[in-house]
């Protein structure tokens, strides 16, 4: 590799000792901001993911509209690429110029990341809940536990435990994707500059179109996995404890 024609340039571009000495401090400060956002986003992601997963797996007929809402949430925000969602929310909401609402790109970027990751975590937690055999519910309900008590004391402890590795996987991915917010900040700045000096109007419609296309691909895949899960559940006799 060191004999490659571009080695000297590449070596200097990627491993410059001078830049290393002068920039590490700045980058570390950026990294700390990233970690700060991560520490705020992660509990939100887990809480929202858990809530939606519980609602989506509820068996009560009364909650059927809520279940549809939860399915739509997952379809839309899991289908939409994170970066596009960041552009749409991180730049779109501040552009609305709402009163008493912050225009901080950092804030709305974090919101976008939380919305996106919650959709993934919802599905992980849901698969954990559904991995608990229905006979466990039958045993708990037979003791006179209510459906909420059964969920809290019997189903969730087992279901969440079985998906901890998958949750950690998403958590690690989140630490990195939080960094995408900085791109939105940079984009916001360059748009500002471009519109100020060059009479240039930036348009996000292509991103909306792209987002819709991605969601259209993801939604049928979600329905397919729903159909498969439902079939498995029916075979195991889940419907019994509605």
């Amino acid at each position: 590799m060191t004999h490659a024609p571009g080695w000297n340039d590449a070596h200097h571009t990627y491993f410059s000792g001078h830049v290393f000495r002068t920039q590490t401090g700045t980058i570390f400060r950026g990294f700390l901001i990233d970690m700060k956002i991560f520490l705020i986003a992660e509990p939100c992601v887990l809480a929202i993911g858990l809530l939606i997963a519980v609602l989506r797996t509820s068996l009560s007929p009364v909650l059927a509209p809520v279940r549809i809402g939860c399915a739509l949430y997952v379809d839309i925000f899991r289908g939409c690429p994170t970066l596009i969602l960041l552009y749409l929310i991180g730049l779109g909401v501040p552009a609305l110029h709402l009163h008493h609402v912050t225009k901080s790109v950092e804030f709305w970027g974090t919101v976008a990341i939380v919305i996106s990751y919650s959709a993934y975590v919802t599905e992980v937690v849901r698969s954990g809940i559904q991995s608990v055999h229905p006979s466990q519910r039958a045993a708990a309900r037979s003791l006179g536990l209510s459906s909420q008590q059964t969920l809290r004391l019997v189903v969730l402890p087992q279901g969440v435990r079985s998906v901890v590795p998958a949750l950690l996987n998403d958590l690690v991915a989140l630490t990195k994707d939080v960094g995408l917010i900085s791109i939105v900040g940079a984009v916001a700045e360059s748009i500002e500059r471009a519109t100020a000096y060059e009479d240039y109007f930036f348009n996000f419609t292509p991103y909306v179109i792209a987002a819709i296309l991605f969601i259209l691909v993801a939604a049928p895949l979600g329905r397919l996995s729903d159909w498969y899960t439902l079939r498995t559940m029916r075979r195991q006799g889940w419907a019994a404890l509605a």
Partner: peptide
């Protein structure tokens, strides 16, 4: 259901609880 005691073919003990906590739960 509290007035019934049920024992299943496949035991259905709660695997994340000790024997004591299984029995003390109700």
């Amino acid at each position: 259901r509290r007035k019934f005691g049920v024992v299943f073919q496949s035991y259905n003990l709660f695997p994340h609880m000790t024997a004591l906590r299984n029995v003390a739960l109700a």
